[in-house]
Amino acid sequence: MFNLLIVDDFAIDRQNVRVILTDFNEIINIVGECGNGKEALEFVHENNVDIIISDIEMPFMNGLELAKNINMHFPNIKIIFCSLYDEFEYARKALVLNAYGYILKPLDKEELFKCLMSAISEIEESAGLKKEFDKLKNILENSKPQLLENFIKEILYSEATDEENMWEKAEYLESKLEKGFFKLVYIEIDEYESLTEEKTVEQKQFFTIKVNERFRDISVKFGGVPIIMLDDSHFVYIVNSSICCSVNEKCTDFSVEVVEKFKLSDISVTVSMSDICENISDIRNLLQQCMYLMRYKFILGNGKVIKTGDVPSGVDSC
C-alpha cells in the first residue's frame, strides 16, 4: 500500500479525488487531507506519505511552494498537480519541480491512473534499489574482518607504493593503523611438523585454530591491528605507534608475552622482531627481515625472541 495525501483548498475537490481513488483502494491508502501547502508540509513532517495530489492555487502556501519544500526535505515523496488553470507557466514549473503529472480539473480517472502508476513505479524501483543497497552494505560490513585481513596481507606482500590509497583503505576498514612508526613481529610454531604428524587433517585444523585464538587473545590486550595467520605455523603482528620509543617498547612487550605464555603450554614458539620503518608501503621489507632472522633459531634455539642484534652480522633495516 502507498500512502497518499490530498491537498486542495476546496472540500468538494478533495471529495472528488477520494471518489476517483476508490478504484485504487487496493494499492492506495489515503492518509489525510489538507487545505493548503502549509498544512500539508506540517502533515508530512508527522506522517508517512508516499504521494501527494495537490492543487496549485491555494492560500498561505500554494502547490508550487509546497513542491519546492517537499523536494528539499522529502525528496522521496512524489507529487501530482491538479489545477483549473491550463497555463503553460504552471506546467513548466511543475516539470521543473519533478511533478509526476499536471492534470486539469475536473480530473480524468485514466490520466490520474497513469500519473499514479508512474509515481508508484519509481517508488518501487527506488525501494528495490535501496533494499539491494542495504543488503550489499550489510554484506560488506560483515565482510570487513576478512577484508581487513586481506588488506594486511596486501601490505605484507604487495609491492604497491601508493601510500595515499593504502591509507584510505586502512581508514575505511577501521584498521587502527596510524601514521608514524612500524615494527613487525613474526611468530613460528616450533617443531610444527612433529607436533602434528600424527594428527588427522581435522585435528590439525583444530590445533591451528586453538593456537590462533591464543595469539588473538594476546594481541587484543595490546590493541592495534589483529594478528594475521600466514599459514598453519606462521603468524604476523604489526606493531604501530606515532612515537618511536613506544613502538619499540610495545613490540618487545608483545613478543616476550607471546613466548612466555606458550612456555606455560606444551607448545613452543619462536618470535623474530624487525627494525623500524616509517612508511606503510615498506612493511613488506620488514617481513622479509623477520623471515631472515627466523633462520637463526636453529643456532639460537627455540622459544626465544630474536632481534637484529642477535645475529652475527645484523640485517639491513627498511
Rank of each mutant, 00 (worst) to 15 (best):
L107T: 00
E122N: 14
R18T: 12
K105G: 06
S255G: 04
K199I: 06
V315C: 05
L129T: 08
K38H: 13
L287G: 03
A94L: 09
L66G: 12
D9L: 13
G223W: 00
Y292W: 09
K135T: 12
T270E: 01
I52K: 02
F181T: 14
D162F: 03
K130I: 10
T308M: 13
E249W: 13
F151L: 00
N48Y: 09
K179T: 14
K137R: 09
L286P: 05
E149P: 03
N212W: 07
Y102F: 12
E197R: 09
I103M: 07
Q289E: 10
D134R: 12
D217S: 13
E57I: 10
A119L: 01
S242Y: 10
F235Y: 05
N16M: 06
V7T: 13
G37D: 00
D108P: 08
N29V: 01
I56A: 00
F74E: 03
K250S: 06
F206K: 12
G303A: 01
P75F: 03
W167P: 03
N248E: 15
G301V: 02
S281A: 14
R284M: 10
R216L: 09
E202S: 11
L195V: 01
N71H: 02
C82R: 14
N138Q: 15
D190K: 10
I80M: 09
L177K: 00
W167H: 03
K169P: 04
A99D: 04
L264D: 12
K204M: 08
Q288C: 09
Q205L: 08
V236G: 02
L147D: 04
N165A: 13
K221Y: 05
F151R: 01
I28A: 02
P312M: 11
I79Y: 05
E89D: 15
A91W: 12
P59N: 15
K250W: 01
V17H: 01
S265K: 07
N150P: 15
E191G: 11
G301F: 05
S313N: 14
R284T: 11
I189E: 00
G32F: 11
S265V: 03
N212M: 07
L173V: 01
D55Q: 12
C82H: 07
P59I: 08
R214E: 15
V96W: 02
G180V: 04
E111D: 10
N25S: 10
I28F: 05
E171G: 07
G309H: 04
P226H: 00
E257H: 08
K297N: 07
I283Y: 03
K307W: 05
N76D: 06
V247Q: 01
D162A: 04
S158V: 00
S83C: 08
R92Q: 08
L177H: 02
T200Q: 02
Q15A: 10
E57M: 15
S274C: 07
F181N: 15
F81I: 02
F43R: 05
L140C: 10
L97R: 02
E191K: 09
V31T: 08
Q205F: 03
R295I: 14
D253K: 13
V201N: 06
Q203V: 05
S317G: 07
E124H: 06
E191H: 13
I139V: 14
I123N: 00
F10D: 15
P59E: 14
V17Y: 00
K307T: 14
G309C: 07
I243N: 10
Q288P: 12
K297R: 09
I189R: 00
N142Y: 13
L293C: 02
S219Y: 05
K131Y: 15
E213N: 04
V236F: 00
F207K: 03
I28N: 00
I238M: 11
N142A: 10
